[in-house]
Amino acid sequence: MSGIDPMLPFDVALALALVALSWAVLAAADRFAMVVLFIVLGLMVALAWVRLGAPDVALAEAAIGAGVTGALLLATLRHLRGPEAAPAPGPVRWSVAALVAGVTVALGAVVVAVATAPRPEGLAGPVRDNLPASGVEHAVTAVLLNFRAHDTLMEVVVLLIAVIVVWAVDRGLAAAHDPAAGPEADGLGPVQAGYARLALPAAVVLGIYLLWAGAHAPGGAFQAGAVLSAVGIMAVLAGRWRPEAHHRAWARAVFGLGAAVFVLVALGVGLGPGVAYEYPPHLAKPLILAIEAAVTLSIAATLAALFFGREPAPVSRSRGRRP
């Protein structure tokens, strides 16, 4: 590829937007604005990844960077209402200035240099060559669950940590007030409730389909989990199901299920002649599907719990009680 990339203006704009957003995140006076900007920043970075030719990374980043951390930040934010933070002290302003200056220069240099340089083929070749041995037909799934399964396991772990943290936050503040716009509000009209009743089975089917399709077409555990989590969220919103304290043990088990199955499979195949994550060729497909199924369940439960935003605790008894 010679000459100037036609996408260069877009890349430069994207880079500048990233800088502006990072600055805005650090400088935002209002914490809520800060969080929203952060979510936007995460999406922009995901976009940058697409431009960089790595859609799989982009998906993971969109899920983790924007979704999870945004939810986490919002969950934290709920408890910071009240005394608004004092204006940023001097050192913070310096560091913001230093950061913005550094990042601007670096990004400018990188974008120009990378855009004018020849592009290497990347990993597409090796992925194509090894696809038959991976047990699945779709490249992204092969990368996520076989070639770079270690990364994916750790991304599942990130989600798990997120839900542990969100639960920990609420339990840490015995005096925390209820989620302001929380799902306990029974403000759903009959239309929404009816819609939920119709949509729930469809969403379940869609989620399972995405999971299956991940083996040979784009899709997979993260997307399927996201769709299935919508099921849980809608069920809660429609008042069809309400998280109770005695659900906690089950919930924890489901949160951990995906990572557990993943780890056990990874270690189990390592007990044989291979190393960890080295699936025997004839078992690769079923093992990957098993992992995906478990991970999908965990992701669905985790995202729904993140949306719900706090650990369900008995209403009548004091929330100060700890397990």
């Binding site: 990233l18 970075v45 940058a48 790595a54 240099a113 340089a117 990347g122």
Partner: peptide, 13 residues
């Protein structure tokens, strides 16, 4: 992560 992305774009690994 951005830096990692640029490395990947530049060198493909």
């Amino acid at each position: 992560l951005l830096a990692v992305g640029f490395v990947y774009l530049r060198f493909g690994r």
